[in-house]
């Protein structure tokens, strides 16, 4: 089954039709989607700029990360759920769009770095031992991560246009 056929099938399901035809659903789901991305961006500024050594440099990396990573994890869950609803409501606008799949690839990469690599820095250091050393994290990766989150927002908005 091709993506187009799948999209057509999805579009015709009663659930997809109900989402589309209830006028308030799409704007309100998009609002929650945007609120979730603000949680990600705020937390990413704090954590990635800390790792880039430009923000809160007097605080241990593990402390800053452990404060924000749980929020990022839950915001990602909300993004996924609301995003899935938006795809179900309008499969034709997303599943066959290059911008949409570019966004998905960027989201997968950024989530992986955040939930695996960034979390490992907390697990590795947050044991309260007196001999904590700063991890040698890449400053360019941290700044790249912020750019990727911005690119994700751009892709999200451009799905509606291209």
């Amino acid at each position: 089954m091709s993506l187009t056929t799948f999209g057509d099938w999805l579009y015709a399901t009663p659930f997809s039709t109900a989402l589309r035809q209830t006028t308030w659903v799409i704007p309100d789901v998009q609002t929650v989607h945007i609120l979730a991305i603000t949680v990600i961006v705020g937390s990413a500024i704090a954590t990635e700029l800390r790792l880039a050594r430009v923000f809160a440099t007097d605080r241990p990396v593990a402390d800053v990360l452990s404060r924000y990573l749980p929020w990022m994890k839950w915001a990602l869950v909300v993004l996924l759920v609301t995003g899935a609803l938006l795809v179900i409501a309008e499969p034709g606008r997303t599943l066959t769009s290059t911008i949409f799949w570019t966004k998905m690839a960027l989201v997968a990469g950024a989530s992986l770095v955040t939930l695996r690599a960034r979390r490992s820095l907390v697990v590795g250091m947050g044991d309260g031992s007196a001999t904590q050393v700063e991890p040698a994290t890449s400053r360019s990766l941290a700044l790249l991560m912020l750019l990727v989150w911005c690119a994700i927002i751009f892709c999200g908005r451009f799905i509606a246009y291209i």
Partner: peptide, 16 residues
């Protein structure tokens, strides 16, 4: 898009 990036930074930091 720039507006959404900007508001995400505004509300993301204000929220904290």
């Amino acid at each position: 898009s720039l507006h959404v990036v900007a508001l995400a930074v505004v509300f993301g930091t204000i929220m904290i």
